[in-house]
Structures are given as C-alpha cells and as structure tokens.
Design a protein around this nucleic acid. Structure first.
Length: 273
DNA sequence: GCGCAGGTAGAGT
DNA sequence: ACTCTACCTGCG
C-alpha cells in the first residue's frame, strides 16, 4: 500500500471527466483503474489517498500515469480572475488531472467516442477488452482484461466489432489496427512528434478528425496545447466566449482549461436545473 | 417517434 | 472553403 497526500487531485473527478474509460467507482471514494496491463485500486478521503500496490510500481508507473509530478496550482494560477466562467469551472473541477494514457488505447477509445454517449463508450471498450484483450488476474484473484493490441484487431473483418456494439465505428478501429500492424502508422514516431505534426499524422487515419486527434494528443501524448472542441465545448464557447477562447493567453495549457470546462458542462447536464 | 450523444467522410454547391 | 447528410445504437 502506498499513502500520499496530494493537492488538486480527485479520483472521482478524474473518473467522471471522461478522459479515461477504464476507471470505475467501486464505492464511495473507492476506485479501480486498468492501464498498461495493470490493475489498481485506490481510495481517497480529502487529500489523503491510498493506492493498493507496491511502492515500486507506484513510483515506476502510477506517478506518471496520474501526472502527480505536475503542480496544478501553476496551471490554475494562470486563469484570468476576471473570467468568471473559467474560474467557476476550474473551481468545480479542482481535482482534474490530465492523465498519461497509452497512445494506441486512446486512438481506439476516441474513435469509438464519436457521436456516442460516455456510458456506451465504456461498454464498447469493455466489450472489446473482454473479447480480444489478455485475461489477467488482480491481487484479489479477480479477472480483468488488458486492452487488446493492434495485432489482436488487425485481422478482423471491418464489421466484426459491431458485435462489440461499436456500430459504424467498427471499420475505423479495424483499419487503424491494420495501419499500425503494416507499419503505415508508426506509433513510436507519433510519440516523438510535436503537437501539430502528431495531430496532422493522426488525422490521416480513417475516422480521425480534428476533435478525435486533439483528444489523442491531449490524453496520450500530453500535448497540453491540444484543445478538443466537441459539442459541449462548442456550446460553451458560443455562450461564454463570443470573441473566441483566449488561445494566446492559455496556449500551452489550453487542454487543461478544456477539461475544466468540459467537466463543468457534463456535470451540470446531469443536474436537474 | 424524434433528436441527440465527447464527429467524420464524402458529396454537392 | 463551406454546407449537408448518412452513419450504429440507445436513451430521454
């Protein structure tokens, strides 16, 4: 077990923010995450966090995964105090962090995300993991499934993933898998690219447009200047930033601000008012 | 039943 | 360059 007091960190908010589809709430302040072929449970009360893994695994993997070396007070300090909307959104999502997730997994996840509900995205991803991912056992003897690699999906028929409930997105995922396996898409090369180049390269894939490419850049490549514009952000911009989002001011941290706004939007949507 | 959900490709102006 | 539409599926 690993104990840490962490500022500006909320497992609940990260789970609900919709950047990670393989994190689930097991109970009040109790979460499970699957990433990098690993399974982790964690509990949180206020700033006090308990991670159920060895110190070594925590230092080697989860510290970077949760972006714990980054001081989010620095990002938050850049917010214009006169921007009441952003101040309110950032206050609401005080514990959000931009995770460091796997590139292939984010590519597939956000191909699936388009024109889809978060709840169904989770189900789709669970389906393909259970059908094509490696079965493993966690520390409590329970089974969990790793995310399937490109090889596991490349040989499928283009419509095969409709059985996993992907709908018309099935061919996007299968074709992406083939691109990786044939070497047409070099994931290692994409990892080394700067934001614009990575975005452009990803958009060359069938089914990857600006929004999906930006999500991949932000959540896998940690390019914090990526600013995915989806329907929620688009509406927020229309009502609160009629002269456009202040990109110049926030360039380099736009992605963090996007997450505050996005989380604020989807959370308010669930409330009655 | 109809519109929308973390959009995008392709066709038509 | 810009607008329009089809696309799987499910939920309000």
């Amino acid at each position: 077990m690993v104990h840490r007091n962490i500022e500006y960190f909320s497992l609940e908010q990260i789970c609900r923010s919709g950047q990670c589809f393989r994190m689930e709430e097991k109970g009040e302040g109790h979460f499970a995450v699957i990433a990098g072929g690993r399974y982790l449970e964690a509990k949180q009360q206020g700033n006090a966090c308990t991670f159920f893994c060895e110190e070594e695994e925590f230092e080697e993997f989860w510290t970077e995964y949760f972006d714990l070396e980054q001081d989010y007070a620095v990002f938050r300090g850049q917010i214009n105090p006169r921007d009441a909307y952003l101040v309110q959104a950032a206050d609401y999502g005080w514990g959000i962090r931009i995770l460091h997730q796997d590139l292939w997994e984010m590519l597939v996840s956000f191909l699936i995300s388009q024109q889809n509900h978060i709840q169904r995205i989770r189900r789709c991803i669970r389906n393909i993991c259970e059908s094509y991912g490696e079965r493993k056992v966690n520390g409590w003897g329970e089974a969990f499934y790793a995310f399937p690699g490109p090889e596991a999906l490349a040989s499928l028929e283009e419509d095969a993933l409709k059985a996993s409930n992907l709908g018309y997105r099935s061919k996007y995922v299968v074709r992406a898998a083939r691109s990786v396996v044939t070497g047409e898409l070099d994931l290692e090369a994409v990892r080394r690219m700067p934001y614009r180049k990575a975005r452009e390269t990803l958009m060359g894939l069938f089914g990857v447009g600006e929004k999906v490419a930006d999500c991949i850049c932000l959540f896998a490549l940690h390019h914090l200047e990526a600013f995915p514009v989806d329907t929620h952000i688009s509406q927020a911009l229309a009502s609160h930033y009629k002269r456009g989002f202040p990109n110049r001011r926030y360039w380099g941290v736009r992605g963090v601000m996007q997450q505050y706004i996005f989380y604020y939007c989807i959370s308010l949507g669930h409330e009655t008012g």
